[in-house]
């Protein structure tokens, strides 16, 4: 046996277990989703090839059309609010922690605490606090703002916002500490040069720090897109699988689950439509990630 064959065998030995698992559990189901979405289904049995008919149904036929675009709108809302509040907030928190304000080590640890909790536990905890007779309304009454009390999860116009805010409570520590690490990595000489030129803190932040942490902004943006498209547990625990009240909190994730395991139209699982929605989730994730990488990548600065 020569040296090359021996090496080839070793390589195969090292990579094949992982390759087998990734292939069977991640890649094969991806292709099966694509394949399944092109057929009509009777329960779990594949029927005829129907081309893009399932996709046409999702986009143009009731009840799927209304449900789908309503859910997509909510996912968009998740993305925008998370970007504006959680990620901008995280950037500010990261910045001030990097300026080592008093007790910064303590704040750093505290802000990260909820990141470790399961979405399910956090969702249920806040669903108790947000009930009409829960802690949040109780607090508003104590501080003399009883006119602000709401059915936080029962009112169609605010339920989605309440759930997004709970999720921000859980997750804001993550972007904060990613941005903190990025700002701490900005080379000292860049900052010193700016100070010597008499730049104010604000100018240093916008003109020096921000351009240099674009890679981190990019990663956080992509992760936010993926996260927003995959919202499921938050809705399941705080609003239920139907996105109550009256589908106002429904997302692609919950709609997808209902389609796959029964109940949008007939109450039965609809494999064809479900697979089509699954494929749409893949495509959206892929497109949005590529778009933000291309868009923000251009603004990246090389030192």
């Amino acid at each position: 046996m020569n040296k090359r064959t021996a090496e080839r065998r070793w390589i195969l030995f090292f990579i094949s277990p992982a390759l087998a698992v990734v292939f069977v559990i991640i890649l094969l189901p991806l292709f099966m989703s694509l394949f399944n979405s092109l057929f009509s289904w009777k329960q779990l049995i594949r029927q005829d090839f129907i081309g893009l008919e399932n996709f046409r149904k999702v986009f143009f036929t009731e009840p799927y059309k209304t449900r789908f675009f309503n859910a997509l709108k909510n996912n968009g809302l998740w993305f925008i609010i998370t970007m504006l509040i959680q990620n901008v907030g995280g950037l500010l928190i990261g910045y001030f922690l990097s300026r080592r304000v008093w007790a910064h080590e303590f704040y750093k640890r505290v802000i990260f605490i909820p990141v470790l909790f399961s979405i399910v536990a956090v969702g249920f905890l806040w669903s108790l606090y947000l009930r009409p007779n829960g802690l949040v309304n109780g607090f508003l009454k104590i501080v003399g703002l009883p006119q602000l009390t709401r059915a936080w999860l029962g009112d169609e116009s605010i339920a989605t916002f309440s759930i997004i805010f709970v999720n921000i409570w859980r997750w804001i520590g993550f972007p904060s500490l990613v941005f903190l690490a990025a700002i701490d990595n900005v080379p000292m000489d860049c900052l010193e040069a700016a100070w010597l030129d008499g730049a104010t803190d604000r100018r240093v932040f916008f003109k020096v720090i921000l351009p240099l942490i674009v890679p981190s902004i990019l990663i956080i943006t992509v992760l936010t897109i993926i996260g927003s498209l995959n919202v499921f547990e938050q809705i399941y625990t705080m609003a239920g699988l139907d996105g109550a009240p009256n589908f106002s909190t429904d997302t692609i994730g919950t709609l997808f689950y209902r389609t796959a395991f029964g109940s949008v139209d007939s109450g039965n699982p609809e494999i064809g439509i479900g697979s089509a929605i699954g494929v749409i989730i893949y495509l959206l994730t892929f497109l949005a990630s590529v778009a933000s990488i291309v868009g923000l990548g251009k603004k990246e600065v090389e030192l």
């Binding site: 890649l27 094969l28 993926i226 699954g278």
Partner: peptide, 24 residues
């Protein structure tokens, strides 16, 4: 190629494949 194949798994939302996974 092998490396990229592994990396693609980071971006793919596994939940979206729940139907074929269930059948499997």
């Amino acid at each position: 190629a092998v490396y990229m194949l592994f990396l693609s798994g980071i971006m793919l939302p596994l939940k979206a494949a729940i139907i074929p996974l269930f059948m499997l």
